[in-house]
């Protein structure tokens, strides 16, 4: 039991940190521009593919920095020449734009790389066991992902709280019109935040592509869950995104690894529902089968009972 808990916690922490890398950029973009960027996870995927390709020439360590920069540049162009024009027509066209973009990116990736998973592997320097718990080894690469995520969180936090650019971003989260009236170039701030946010997602992709699999479906696997994190954490809140990532990450890992159903509770009290009962399906429903639904159940409940999320300043 303790073994399962420890291992689920470690894995949940890792999954949560990966979710955080994706959602931190999105929460800023969503909070500031009001754009529900469906293509955000596509930039995460591009991070993985770019790092894989670059890595063949430059090695992993250079690719770790270069891939997010390239993806961030693509993000800047997307905002400058795409979203900014669509923005004038309102939020729904913006949403459709990012929706279309997500499919375009996925199809382009298929076109260039094919549908099979890439042979994208961790660098040899990180390919060792860091420690062993309960006879199961914990790879150093997972610890490396955690370190990258923590550095990212601290860096983001300092950027937002301690720099003038951070002040302008924070002001724009609530009142972009007034920030502009005070003489700050808000469209340019939007572009930088979009570029920066997509670069962070790409950084998540550089490490996530190794941890999971680098294949064209990876964006659509992560995309919806990232929205749950952003809404649960609260629009525009980096600490909120971190907490929400951890909650979703750990909760999902636990429900997947613990074999549990209402029937177990019933058994403690010596009660059981016959298998042909109307509610038997629900009664014997295994927690592992609830796991995929859980984040979205949380999304729905958050929107009903606490629309501004854990730490958000305004409603989603």
């Amino acid at each position: 039991m303790l073994e399962t808990i420890t291992y689920s916690l470690l894995n949940g922490l890792l999954y949560g940190m990966l979710l955080f890398m994706l959602s931190s950029g999105l929460t800023l973009i969503f909070g500031m521009m009001g754009v529900l960027n469906f293509a955000h996870a596509s930039f995460y995927m591009l991070g993985a593919y770019f790092a894989y390709t670059l890595g063949m020439y430059t090695g992993f360590w250079v690719a770790l920095f270069l891939a997010p920069i390239l993806v961030g540049a693509l993000g800047a162009m997307t905002e400058r020449w795409g979203l900014r024009h669509v923005h004038q027509h309102g939020h729904v066209p913006e949403l459709l734009f990012t929706f279309g973009l997500a499919y375009v990116i996925e199809e382009l990736v298929r076109l260039f790389y094919g549908t099979l998973p890439m042979n994208y592997r961790m660098p040899e320097g990180l390919d060792f066991t860091l420690f062993t718990v309960f006879g199961t080894s914990y790879p150093a690469f997972r610890a490396f992902i955690l370190v990258v995520a923590v550095v990212m969180f601290v860096g983001l936090y300092l950027l937002l709280k301690k720099t003038r650019a951070g002040l302008i971003i924070q002001g724009s989260l609530s009142r972009p019109d007034i920030v502009a009236a005070l003489g700050h170039n808000v469209p340019q701030v939007f572009m930088w935040v979009f570029a920066f946010g997509t670069a962070l997602a790409a950084l998540g992709g550089v490490v996530g592509g190794i941890h999971f699999v680098t294949e064209p479906g990876m964006a659509f696997m992560m995309g919806p869950i990232v929205f749950v994190v952003v809404v649960l954490g609260g629009l525009g809140s980096i600490p909120g995104a971190l907490i929400a990532s951890m909650i979703i990450g750990i909760l999902q890992t636990f429900t997947l690894s613990v074999d549990f159903s209402i029937a177990h509770v019933g058994a403690w009290f010596g009660y059981a529902v016959p298998p042909d009962h109307l509610f038997a399906t629900l009664w014997y429903l295994d927690s592992t089968r609830i796991a995929p639904v859980l984040p979205f159940l949380i999304l729905v409940l958050t929107l009903i009972f606490r629309p501004r999320g854990i730490m958000g300043k305004r409603e989603a």
Binding site: G171, S174, D177, I178, A180, A181, L182, G183, H184, V186
Partner: peptide, 21 residues
């Protein structure tokens, strides 16, 4: 708006628009 502000116009909106946080 930011260009207009740079020309030397200031604006104090009706709702005061203090940045929360």
């Amino acid at each position: 708006p930011h260009q207009i502000a740079h020309r030397g116009l200031g604006y104090v909106p009706e709702d005061r628009a203090i940045f929360p946080g």
